[in-house]
């Protein structure tokens, strides 16, 4: 009995427990900093404290399971593919951030996602992505008059 409880059987559960405790701590800190007070009834920090407690209880729950039930075997993951999508998403965020426009962003997003799924011909995918992005952009800006982020390229239209 003691032997079993000493053996760590579920590493992910411990990690989740730590994350839960950390989030609970941040929430507690945030709630303790609040200045606005409700004159009647409960303040805005009541919900924060409640959820903080909830998170802490779940953290304890995860710690308990970590020593009792073995982890579910996580499957092998293709980290290269994950990286590909990460590049794709950063391409989009980056081009919006730097003001390079929606079309470039969605071109990068499309092409690198396709690459993550095993496509080899990047140029073809870039072309498809660019075409798609441009059509969407024109549809929104011209037909629906909803301004998607513009870069130098979009200003040509």
């Amino acid at each position: 009995m003691t032997e079993r409880s000493l053996k760590l059987a579920n590493r992910p559960a411990v990690v989740v427990a730590m994350v839960l405790f950390a989030v609970a701590a941040v929430t507690y800190w945030d709630a303790s900093q609040m200045t606005a007070r409700a004159t009647y009834g409960m303040g805005a920090n009541a919900a924060s404290y409640f959820i903080c407690l909830f998170l802490a209880v779940l953290g304890v729950g995860h710690l308990l399971t970590a020593f009792q039930t073995p982890a579910i075997e996580a499957e092998d993951a293709d980290w290269k593919a994950i990286g590909g999508i990460a590049i794709a998403l950063s391409g989009l965020v980056g081009s919006i951030w730097l003001g390079a426009g929606f079309t470039l962003g969605s071109t990068l997003l499309f092409a690198f996602t396709a690459r993550a799924f095993g496509r080899k011909s990047l140029v073809v995918d870039l072309a498809i992505g660019a075409f798609m992005g441009l059509v969407i952009f024109l549809l929104f800006n011209k037909l629906l008059s909803l301004a998607l982020p513009q870069g130098p390229f979009e200003r040509l239209f």
Binding site: A100, L122, G151, P152, F153, R155, L156
Partner: peptide, 20 residues
């Protein structure tokens, strides 16, 4: 790919002059 980037940069420069 490189060709594409070059074209993109050219287009960007061109567009920059038309802006503001």
């Amino acid at each position: 790919m490189r060709q594409f980037l070059k074209t993109a940069v050219c287009l960007a420069a061109l567009a920059g002059t038309a802006f503001y």
